[in-house]
């Protein structure tokens, strides 16, 4: 087998991040907020989605670290209290997922999530989140949510918004598909039994786009992601635009039995071999465009077969 050609430093780093095992953090805290609906229909829809997500998260991990606010309880004071409490509990090894559902507004400067009582602005949210250590994922699924990116983006925090700017003001459908992404095993496209934030983002944004396409409606929302803390949000994160690396590492939900944190000593060599093969496969895929198709297929088949054999050995 021919060795893979050398990769540029940036790509190598990207690959390493992509290949990094979706490591189980010390703890993951989930906070879901369903804001004011304004009308009974929206009120019901937002609360229903929040409850769905709550149920899925609890069923998945059995975790008690799930906090869901909806209806009259979803106030700015309560949200501040929940996030304040996490600031005291969380360690730098922990992770936080904040999911916002509802209507948002944007005045050209700051984004606000509509809540019973005073609204919470993105600047206020950022200030609350900055006090919490560890990796963070903020998913703002409201109208105008694109207007929140500037205030929220930060190194170590992935930000997903349902709209590309603060001026996309119509009610969104992204939240529906985000909830579906957590429920649908098909979201786990790499079949590693973990739904990453990136996989869920791709699922929900694709389904949202398809919704507008099939309904023959002009799309009034365009989801985007920013997870470097210093770039512009993008709609299609990739190694090329440098976005999506943190989201790819961010384990949002575990589907099957979590992978053993440490393998038995006798299998350690096999695990090392498996990891090497996975890296070689990833390298080869990046080389695809630059090599003859037959050669690519031949090398890929050999690597995949070896990986399957190795996995079978591990599973024995």
């Amino acid at each position: 087998m021919a060795p893979p050609a050398a990769l540029g430093g940036g790509v190598r780093l990207a690959l390493l991040l992509l290949l990094a095992v979706l490591s189980a953090p010390a703890a993951t805290f989930y906070v879901t907020v369903a804001g004011l609906g304004g009308e009974p229909e929206y009120e019901q829809r937002f609360a229903g989605l929040a409850k769905d997500i709550d149920k899925l998260l609890k069923a998945s991990s059995g975790s008690t670290r799930v906090e869901t606010l909806y209806g009259p309880a979803a106030t700015k004071a309560k949200l501040s209290e929940v996030l304040g409490s996490l600031a005291n509990q969380a360690t730098p090894q922990d992770s936080l997922v904040l999911m916002l559902i509802g209507h948002g507004s944007y005045d050209g400067f700051d984004y606000k999530l509509n809540l019973p009582g005073p609204d919470v602005s993105s600047i206020e949210l950022a200030s609350m989140l900055d006090r919490i250590p560890g990796m963070q994922l903020v998913v703002s699924m409201t109208s105008c949510s694109g207007g929140a990116v500037l205030a929220l983006k930060k190194e170590g925090r992935a930000v997903i918004t349902a709209t590309k700017s603060g001026t996309e003001k119509n009610a969104t459908v992204f939240a529906r598909y985000w909830a579906e992404a957590l429920r649908d095993a098909a979201t786990d496209t790499d079949k590693n039994e973990v739904i990453s934030a990136l996989e869920a983002y791709r699922y929900a944004s694709e389904k949202t786009a398809r919704f507008y396409d099939t309904q023959k409606r002009i799309a009034t929302e365009h989801a985007q992601l920013e997870d470097t803390g210093k770039g512009d949000p993008v709609r299609d994160p990739s190694a090329e635009n440098g976005q999506g690396l943190l989201a790819a590492r961010f384990a949002l939900l575990r589907l099957g039995a979590a992978q053993a944190a440490a393998a038995a000593p006798e299998k350690r060599k096999l695990l090392e071999k498996k990891e090497t093969l996975e890296q070689q496969i990833a390298h080869l895929k990046y080389q695809r465009a630059a090599m003859p198709t037959d050669e690519y297929k031949k090398q890929l088949a050999a690597l995949l077969l070896e990986l399957a054999q190795t996995q079978a050995e591990i599973d024995k």
């Binding site: 996975e278 496969i281 990986l307 399957a308 079978a312």
Partner: peptide, 12 residues
């Protein structure tokens, strides 16, 4: 497997 190298049923 190209899409998901660790996909167990496909490996089998």
């Amino acid at each position: 497997l190209e899409a998901a190298p660790g996909y167990r049923p496909a490996q089998k």
